[in-house]
């Protein structure tokens, strides 16, 4: 039952709960780190060693993303050169560039189309917050308003080294995750099949302006003006 290959469905966490072990034995085993942790280790090792990004470029940052696959940087060393064109086979969505309001529904839809476990890297100032185009009427102020982001890369555009570093950070994060047993912190299994509502673009603005499940506007500080900009 501990075999992760059986837990392809989102009910994985309930599945591992139904293992015929009483809690005492389980905790003892976990203390001893016998099966659960070694399966977890193998699972994390495999996932972190083969993160396949989606071949998906938005703007300027996409060029640096492609550069990171080039011979000077070579993302292939980490096993991630397999840029899959179809979201169905990808693990990692690199939001590389400015997300406009017309494009945001498509980005969320692509995230929904990806199978679990999936990760998101927000690459560049635009994807994080709107960047230099933040004041514009057609630019989404950060993709994290709609989908959960695992790693942010600042920069405009970030260098390919930064892309590699973000990938290594993501790998570290994956290795820290615990999937089996109580207290799992792997969102792919705890939250199940993560699918977020696709905002609709009315031609003027996005509806809703953000997804409250994922993002909440920061609390207003007393000395700040209404629009939140100093």
């Amino acid at each position: 039952m501990e075999d992760p290959s059986k837990s392809t469905t989102s009910e994985a966490h309930t599945l591992s709960d139904s293992v015929d072990l009483d809690d005492a034995t389980r905790s003892e085993m976990e203390k001893a780190g016998v099966i659960v942790s070694s399966v977890d280790w193998l699972y994390n090792w495999a996932r972190s060693g083969s993160v396949w990004p989606l071949q998906f470029g938005l703007a300027c940052c996409a060029i640096e993303m492609i550069c990171s696959a080039g011979s000077r940087y070579d993302i292939a060393r980490f096993g991630s050169e397999v840029f899959r064109p179809s979201p169905r086979q990808a693990d990692l969505l690199i939001v590389s560039g400015t997300v406009t309001k017309k494009m945001a529904p498509q980005v969320v839809r692509i995230f929904n189309q990806m199978p679990e476990p999936k990760y998101v890297i927000a690459m560049g100032a635009c994807a994080i917050s709107g960047g230099p185009f933040k004041q514009g009427y057609n630019v989404l102020k950060g993709i994290d308003r709609y989908i959960p982001v695992d790693v942010y890369i600042p920069g405009c555009p970030p260098r390919p080294e930064a892309v590699l570093h973000s990938l290594m950070t993501l790998q570290k994060g994956i290795r820290r995750q615990r999937t089996l047993g109580k207290g799992s912190n792997n969102p792919a299994y705890v939250e199940g099949n993560r699918e977020y509502p696709v905002p609709s673009f009315s031609g003027k603005d996005l509806d809703p302006p953000y997804n409250p499940e994922v993002w909440q506007p920061p609390e207003k500080r007393p000395n700040m003006p209404e629009d939140g900009c100093p």
Binding site: L58, T98, T100, F133, G136, Y137, N138
Partner: peptide, 10 residues
Amino acid sequence: GYLHRNHEKL
């Protein structure tokens, strides 16, 4: 128009 970043307006 998927990358219209209001360059001119800005």
